[in-house]
Design a protein around this nucleic acid. Structure first.
Lengths: 143, 143
DNA sequence: TTATAAAAATGTAATCGTTACAAATTTAAA
DNA sequence: TTTAAATTTGTAACGATTACATTTTTATAA
């Protein structure tokens, strides 16, 4: 099952406008968990009429419809992920990079504890330091 | 092992000023995952010289020293938790309430996947609707 | 096609949580 | 006490996001 952004949006019940396709395509082809601003800056050169508000509106719509994940991982910017399958995320507190991590299919929270809750989303975030930043800290450091 | 906020801060290597004790005490006695603003508003009446900046500075210090957890769960405000033991959180997308959830001691991510990463924090967030909000949505709704 | 309505995109201004910064105050050390 | 260091304070600034009114595009139907 392979679609492009256009077919993917339709499969999610989202009308595929030019702007929406561009944003979705960017997220499907860039697995860097970009911010709205990064997406805007990436698309703007080839789409000079694009508005930042449109990017925000589009990402909000995508998130509501389950077409993308909105990651509240750094408390500063929202980051977006075009891969909505269950997986964990690691963010480096040094350089800010974010990695995907495969998630084991185990019971994190026992069913009895969420029996009166309707769970729609689960996010597992790990924070720490990537290999590079760890090395930098070990050797000489802070200017 | 029982301390108050004062002893707790000392055990974390944090010098216990009047303001820091007040903030820490608030977090130890209110398990509502308050925002910085909520903490400020709660303490202000009894401490009219308190500055909001101090609350922010204090919470940042506490987080860095591992005395509290900073939850980036709603993408809007940072929320703080005086309980630093491993546990999960549930946030209702309707009313915004946040519940603690016991976390099973299982391997979420296989060791091999984080072998070149230094993990310092793990956050498990669940989102959805609490019982009350779920009921409200079922019966009549939106004004 | 043309008229009309609905949906989407746009740009500007506003909002609001948070941080920067410099001054004032408090605490610790000598 | 004197002096330095740490902490607190208030104001101003910052920056991500949203509100809002307007314009443009798209769909519908006459």
């Amino acid at each position: 099952m392979e679609y492009g952004a256009h077919g993917y949006l339709i499969s999610k019940g989202i009308r595929p406008s030019q702007q929406r396709i561009a944003v979705m395509d960017y997220l499907l082809t860039h697995r860097t968990h970009p911010t709205a601003d990064e997406i805007f800056n990436a698309l703007y050169p080839a789409m000079p009429t694009l508005s930042k508000t449109t990017v925000y509106n589009t990402l909000k719509l995508f998130t509501e419809r389950g077409a993308v994940l909105c990651l509240d991982i750094d408390g500063k910017n929202a980051r977006f992920d075009g891969d909505t399958r269950p997986h964990a995320h690691f963010m480096c507190k040094g350089c800010g990079c974010i990695y995907d991590l495969p998630l084991e299919e185990v019971e994190f929270v026992r069913e009895e504890h969420i029996r009166n809750l309707t769970v729609t989303d689960v996010f597992l975030y790990m924070k720490g330091y990537c290999r590079e930043c760890e090395e930098k800290m070990k050797s000489g450091n802070d200017s």
